[in-house]
Amino acid sequence: MTLLAVERIKLFSTRSPYWCSALALVLGVGLTAIIAASTDNGQLSLGATQFGSSQLALSVVLVMAALAVTTEYRFSTIRATFLAVPNRTSALVAKTVVVAFIAAVLGEIIAFGSVGIAKVLSPASDLAITTGDEWRHVAGVGLLYGIGAVIAIAVGILVRQTAGAVAILLVWNMLLEGLIGIIPKVGVKIQAWLPFMNANHFLQLGGDNPAEQAGAGVDFKLSQWGSLGYFAAIAVALLVVALIVAKRRDA
């Protein structure tokens, strides 16, 4: 508990998490607002409200989580941390827990905020969240952010510099996994096992309109919750590798 308090103080005594959260909120909810405003009233579906949260704002949250670690290396406060808490694993796990929790809460705010603004701008559309699938589609964004933050922190610990970590995370999440689908025949099969593809699979609403679904056309082998578990397992595996490396490396 002490270490969680320490990481909380560290995170909230600098400005970057506030800026990143605000930016994620504006981008995520803002994109939904634009989509809602340019769709005919009554035609907007729930599946269209989460593009901003699950695609655009996610990237900002990944950057925020990576920054929480890389700035520590950038300013060598990681050394001050390891002097105060020589057990590096617990110090870094505490940081991961705090950042992942904040990311998850932020995810819920952005997801439900997006639905809210869509309701305001397109009052005639049916945007009620009633079925289990609909709840998963909206509330699941928070889970996605929390797990995504763990991946971002693991990459941050391994790479130790902001530019590198951010480049890896953005290219991986926004470009690489999508581009692999271009490879004839096997591309789609590989995509079925890529972490962020599975994260998107978890959020899929299963409507009639495939254009609304990220990761559409990929033949996933796992159930939707199975995909989330797979995404989480990859995040934990990456974190374990990062923790082992951090423990052995000279600070």
């Binding site: 002490t2 270490l3 103080i9 560290k10 005594s13 300013f75 941390t81 808490v85």
Partner: peptide
């Protein structure tokens, strides 16, 4: 220089104090 430039001196000492 092992301090975050955007963190106040008191906040820097505070997290150190809490950690121990």
């Amino acid at each position: 220089k092992w301090v975050h430039p955007n963190r106040s001196a008191r906040a820097h000492l505070k997290w150190l104090a809490v950690s121990n």
